[in-house]
Design a protein around this nucleic acid. Structure first.
Lengths: 344, 344
DNA sequence: CTAGGCTACGAAAGCGCTTTCGTAAGCGCT
DNA sequence: AGCGCTTACGAAAGCGCTTTCGTAGCCTAG
């Protein structure tokens, strides 16, 4: 609704510097064809006057859109808000603006958000969070992103693959394996999995890691309970209740993210099942409260803030030919929610 | 970076509908001077073609900027990310875009963010989080917002007052009072306060509530330890350590937000001080993990998501003359972190 | 000393929209 | 029938920028 108003325009800077509009534009955007002397004079005047380009005019004129659109599954989940924090840090350093969209883990909503960002002509699109197993969704997302890139847009994804774009990827499988190995070493055999939303590739990957660790010990995931919930605290609760009801011999629960682990712990408390004495619980992500839960949570640490930073940094660097990948480290953080198998 | 590309423009819609550009524009933005017949034909064609206006062109031409800038103290603090969630919900319903800026509780940074949003010409500015006691900062913020409003911008603030704009306000003082009363009723007298960042009005308000409850019982806050940290988990830890060291007789700690309360609880655990048997702890805000801590946290519930929703809704409704206020309810949620005074 | 080629800059044409201004058509009135 | 008035619409002028194109001015070479 801001009306024109008496704002500083590029032409004001140009006049003050005694050059033409075109030269001023070139000087400020560091383009060729301006002598260093004139360029620095323009920059000087611009700084003195406190000139800031109108982003709408700039974008309209076919220039760079300095907006980055960030699509996340759940804005108020710490996993995503930490990623957003990292993105926002870099954006602030680069003078970019971040628009956050929330898909609620609904693939169609996600596609709608993407379409929206594209028609809104943002300059960069970042997608955080797991992809979907449904090939239709992934193909559609891929098509939209290609279209966007063809228009000159930059893209990077976080924790999502197979989209043919630059990606920052944690090793979900190795993380899952590390969790399962940790429990196996503690002697657990009756392990249950509180899995996240079915149809998310992240769930499949983490599960595959668990499965591989089991196999190495001659066990199989097929004989163990895998309860699907969604990736929220309540999903964890529901899954835990089901595990307690249907698989009473269970001695350890692997929650496939920390939000679910929090739900699992709360269910254990409600049932007065001591953790880790009678039940070990592990999570995945290491959101910041994981260390403050009681018992503190054994989990896989992912550097969420860095992942956000890396993704935007990647998108900003002009890309060569093929999609780049940055792997993030992951560390098994052993805390107080896991212990040896109860002996009785 | 998106280059022009073969995109659908308003003129395409206009031609297809057999009207002029001007008429099409009027029809789609619901302005006067178009017959209902023509208007509906244009809308029809627009929908068929899947036309979406270019927001940059629209804003540049002096129309409405459909971007809302949200300034928060700390993006990855659940208190703020829940507020952001509410804002994003409403924005999605209204077809607006949300830009989130992070000030890190630095007043100068906040002013810089504000200035940035104004020069970027967003349509709406929302500021979440406490104001500052420093009158210079508040005067400057107020001046910037007036300037923005004079340009036609809409503004609302969340949990912040005295800025002369529409506000969504929790009753921090009543909340503080409720917490103190709760502890007093349980018999506590040696109460310490883990206060947030000095210089924040929210801290002062919550503290005033505590003080008023004490006074009603013939006690005074002046004789009780008030330790200032910052509004983070680590701030809570530091404050708790100091309280334990310097005021060993303390039986209850009031943390002025949940993040600090989490830090306090973790410190108690580290010192093996059972909560609530030997120490009661309360927080403020009721972020979603508060219920999942062990012990679960007694705190004041604030409807963060609703606060975000209300703020944007308020900003969207054309304002009459004087600033409007919406008070949010607050409820004392008694959980397991508080209990009667230990008797020895 | 002039032809040819650079370089550094200015004039002007858009980008896609909103909005002002002008005008043709339709109305009731004298 | 002629007048003014209203209504519904089109033409065109920007919004503030980027970018293409054109042209002085200078340098080098013949």
């Amino acid at each position: 609704m801001p009306k024109p108003g008496p704002r500083l325009r590029l032409i004001d800077v140009a006049e003050r510097a005694g050059v033409s509009l075109a030269t001023a534009s070139r000087a400020l955007s560091g383009r060729e064809g301006v002598s260093e002397e004139v360029a620095s004079r323009v920059r000087q005047v611009s700084k003195e006057l406190g000139y800031v380009a109108n982003p709408y005019a700039r974008t309209l004129a076919g220039g760079t859109s300095s907006t980055v659109g960030l699509v996340v599954h759940q804005v108020d989940d710490p996993y995503f808000s930490e990623i957003a924090g990292g993105v926002i840090q870099v954006a602030a350093e680069e003078g970019l603006l971040v628009q956050i969209c929330h898909s609620g883990r609904d693939p169609d909503e996600e596609l709608r958000q993407l379409r929206h960002l594209i028609t809104q002509r943002v300059g960069i699109i970042l997608i955080a969070g797991s992809g979907y197993s449904d090939p239709r969704v992934e193909a559609e997302a891929r098509a939209q992103l290609s279209e966007f890139q063809a228009l000159g847009g930059r893209v990077a994804v976080i924790g999502r693959h197979a989209l043919g774009v630059d990606a920052v990827l944690p090793d979900n499988e190795a993380g899952g394996r590390a969790l399962a190995e940790h429990l196996l070493e503690l002697g657990h055999r009756r392990i249950a999995v509180a899995a996240g939303t079915a149809g998310l590739t992240t769930v499949a990957d983490r599960l595959a890691g668990v499965s591989s660790a089991l196999r190495q010990r001659g066990l199989s995931l097929d004989t163990l309970p895998v309860v699907h919930g969604d990736f929220t605290r309540d999903g964890g609760r529901v899954a835990a209740e089901q595990i307690l009801r249907d698989h009473p011999g269970t001695t350890a629960i692997i929650a496939l993210n920390d939000a679910m682990a929090i739900g699992v712990l709360s269910t254990m408390r409600a049932h007065r099942i001591p953790v880790p004495e009678r039940m070990s619980v592990v999570g995945f992500d290491d959101v910041s409260v994981a260390a403050d839960l009681a018992p503190s949570l054994t989990t896989i640490r992912l550097p969420m803030t860095d992942m956000g930073r890396m993704a935007l940094t990647l998108a900003l660097k002009p890309r060569s030919t093929r999609p780049r990948r940055r792997s993030t480290g992951h560390v098994l953080v052993v805390r107080d929610s896991t212990g040896p198998t109860p002996r009785d």
